[in-house]
Amino acid sequence: MTLLGDDVRQQVVEFLKDLAGPVRLVVFTQEFECEYCAETRQLAEELGELSDQITVEVYDFQANKEKAEELGIDKIPAIAVIGKEDYGVRFYGIPSGYEFTSLLHAVRTVAAGEPELSEEGKKFLAEIDRPLHIQVFVTPTCPYCPHAVTLAHQMAIASPNVRADMVEAMEFPHLAVKYQVMGVPRTVINETVHLEGAAPEPMVLDKIREALQEAEG
């Protein structure tokens, strides 16, 4: 059974028809596939069929430990969306429901390698000189979430030091507990700073400044 219906396929083809460059979807699963691993892999593979620019690579998280480490993958299912370079755009858990939107946006922006952010935002992010990790916790039934995820991914593309993860809270309940996620979207920056809701770019940038200051202080 396919995950993407014919009408959705048509929309996706249309949406991805002008991809600016090649994109690799690097999927991590394992031999005995976890609850949503099989579907995540299948989703990536079905997406790969819809554009000549997209290639899908599937790795076993256990058997290909080195590859996982190279890409900083620490849990599965995972998809790394990689363009001309690896911008640090990751999906942990299946990007289904509303999050399929986020995956499509990630593919398109990674292909272009050019984030859709304000000039001020791009400049600020490009100047970040230390690692910054953004995790956006979501549920697939949250209509506000793709906004937060896409913004975080754009920020990862804007800076070599920023990486951004979508984390599907239902699949990683231990992380939901660890980061006290009781509502989504919840954005966690460098473990310490958090932000509730789908905030506009300037507000997220303020939070990033806060996280960078904490790292200094």
Binding site: Q11, V12, G97, T101, T141
Partner: peptide
């Protein structure tokens, strides 16, 4: 695990 709607669509940006 309940409610896990599979892909039903997306919002194109442009």
């Amino acid at each position: 695990m309940e409610i896990k709607p599979l892909i039903t669509g997306f919002e194109p940006q442009e």
